[in-house]
């Protein structure tokens, strides 16, 4: 039973990593949002499983937040935004998908190499969870680096935050304050980004970051 529990946790965390890879691969904005929804659902399942396993009911709250906020509200509003901005077009990918995937695999390997020895003394559940979480964080960063469009960068950032939550949930008995604060900060972060997107749309034709850079006009 013990083994099965841990295995399920690992499967869920692994699925999250896999979804991260899918995010990395997906090159259409609407598809990206769909996969992000999946990401959030898997996260909430994973957190819920942790809640069950650790017998920590407060984690159910976190899982619920993940479902409601990240799997419903955010994808919904993102869809609204891209519709309003008429950017259903293909996402440009810097560097090519193949290279990006290779780098992603390297990052996955790196996180295992870094984390497994470091967590030798930790309980086995946390061990792999934290390695997977690191991989998700790194993949999220990679996505932010390789994407040009602000919406896909935001999705990259949010997948990164999901990794953080996975790590926080996996850390045995980490006080509630952290989860709430993470959820809370994402909320704030998102509102702010929303404001920004709104403003940016007001000022510029689209939210392509390169457009933003164009206004620099040789300032230094």
């Amino acid at each position: 039973m013990e083994h099965l529990t841990i295995d399920i946790a690992h499967v869920l965390a692994g699925a999250l990593v896999l979804t991260s890879f899918m995010l990395l691969y997906q090159d259409r904005l609407s598809g990206l949002i769909n996969i992000y929804t999946l990401h959030a659902v898997v996260l909430s399942l994973s957190v819920a499983w942790q809640a069950y396993y650790q017998d920590a009911p407060h984690l159910y709250v976190t899982a619920a937040i993940a479902v409601i906020f990240k799997a419903v509200i955010i994808p919904f509003s993102l869809r609204r935004i891209i519709e309003r901005l008429r950017i259903h077009r293909t996402v440009e990918v810097v560097g090519g998908v193949g290279v990006t995937m290779l780098i992603g695999i390297f990052l996955m390997a790196l996180s295992l190499v870094v984390m497994l020895p470091a967590t030798a003394s930790a309980d086995p559940l946390a061990r792999e969870d934290i390695a997977f979480a690191l991989a998700i964080v790194l993949l999220g960063l990679l996505m932010m680096v390789t994407r040009r469009n602000a919406v896909s960068q935001i999705i990259g950032f949010m997948s990164l935050e999901n990794g953080l939550i996975l790590a926080a949930a996996g850390a045995n008995g980490m006080p509630l304050v952290v989860e709430i604060s993470v959820a809370f900060s994402i909320l704030i972060a998102f509102i702010v980004i929303g404001i920004f997107l709104f403003r940016i749309r007001e000022r510029f034709d689209n939210v392509d970051l390169f457009e933003l850079d164009r206004v620099r006009g040789g300032r230094s």
Partner: peptide, 13 residues
């Protein structure tokens, strides 16, 4: 700040 949070979690662990 996200990186810092990850570090904080690791310190906790």
């Amino acid at each position: 700040i996200a990186l810092a949070l990850f570090g904080t979690i690791l310190v906790y662990m």
